[in-house]
Design a protein around this nucleic acid. Structure first.
Lengths: 200, 200
DNA sequence: CAAATTAATGAATGACTATTCAGTATCTTA
DNA sequence: TAAGATACTGAATAGTCATTCATTAATTTG
């Protein structure tokens, strides 16, 4: 047999990897298992990826690219900082909550090594934190966010809350939707960020 | 040779494991490496632990026991909810920030498998979340925390911020102290929790 | 002090699995 | 349609490492 008959094998392998790794974890998943689910021979994996670890890296890349594309597409119009922050929270929970297997990998599997966290993952998270930071600075300029907050710190705090919600959702067996936390999160974070002049 | 000449071997092995696993990650660390650093033979490890994974579990247990002991010892006197929350934040950052190797393990290495996260780790985090939740309920009864917040949600949000600070600290090479974030965190979280009646 | 008991050793085992590569099938081109 | 290129296969390889256990050493007991 030969020749890419149906779909893109690269994609098919990544899709298979998501399912297998989510189920068993990266180290318990063998290359053979991924190959089997993808419907290719073991050796074929190595025509598309240099080694097993690169599958994980590619997985993260693909997810992050989608995340950013989708994000940009849906964030553009938001005018003020509060609207932007609302949108980011909504988007984050929506996108992570969309695919549980992928979420297992980003929230759990991918954090398994300093090496990895430093290399791929944190660089991307860093970009995300920068975007958040800029929104916070904007809000401070608009006078709606407290001026005394360190934007870098605040960005991390926001990310921390979102990330914990995501992890909690992944680990809970219940059949809730992650999106359902959007209101609570927005409420809590805005309370922490906004100036009190508009108080109740 | 024989007979526990110097210290408790169980402890010595765990101490060695912390260093080795922090350096290389759990899967890159061999039992032989741990044995070597602990100054015992490979086989000796198995007189104290059923298998390699149990070393990781025990590590977490020991850390958590210390965390709780220290916590109880230093939390007892705090009277109102705000004081308690301040103390918890301070304590969390102080205890995690005390030992970087251990922090690498709790913040990174330990999160590498759903299996583990479900079993050991999350059960303990659950207890911690309960304590936080109770403090928040107390604050609501005292009238200082917003009554409309879901305590369970709020506890997770608080934990999320603390956990993100810890992870960020572990992954940053800079020589900061984690404790130095105490003020910012307290400030941010109280703003999110407190009623606005006491405004500005 | 001679059994008997306990603690520890570390070389050998056995299982596992990432990766390779010689071979096979399909497709393209001239 | 024959030769060449391309894509894929999957059995074999080679290395790694958790775990075992026969043996040795120290300690205790009678």
């Amino acid at each position: 047999m030969a020749r890419n008959s149906d779909g893109n094998k690269h994609e098919m392998i990544l899709d298979a990897a998501v399912v297998e790794i989510a189920q068993r974890g990266f180290y318990q998943t063998t290359v053979a298992m991924i190959a089997k689910r993808a419907g290719v021979a073991d050796g074929t994996i190595y025509l598309y990826f240099a080694n097993k670890e690169e599958i994980l890296f590619s997985l993260f890349d693909r997810a992050m690219r989608r995340f950013i594309t989708e994000g940009n597409a849906r964030l553009g119009d938001a005018a003020n900082a509060v609207a932007k922050l609302r949108r980011i929270i909504e988007l984050h929970l929506q996108l992570v909550g969309q695919d549980r297997d992928l979420a297992i990998i980003t929230q759990v599997e991918m954090r398994h090594s300093l090496h990895f966290m430093n290399q791929a993952s944190r660089a991307q998270v860093g970009q995300y934190l920068e975007i958040l930071g800029r929104v916070i600075v904007q809000g401070q300029k608009e006078g709606v966010f407290r001026a005394d907050l360190d934007p870098i710190f605040s960005a991390k705090a926001v990310f921390g809350v979102l990330d914990e919600m995501a992890t909690d959702w992944v680990l809970s067996r219940r059949n809730t939707r992650l999106e359902s936390k959007t209101g609570d999160v927005t409420d809590f974070l805005l309370a922490g960020l906004e100036t009190r002049s508009r108080a109740i």
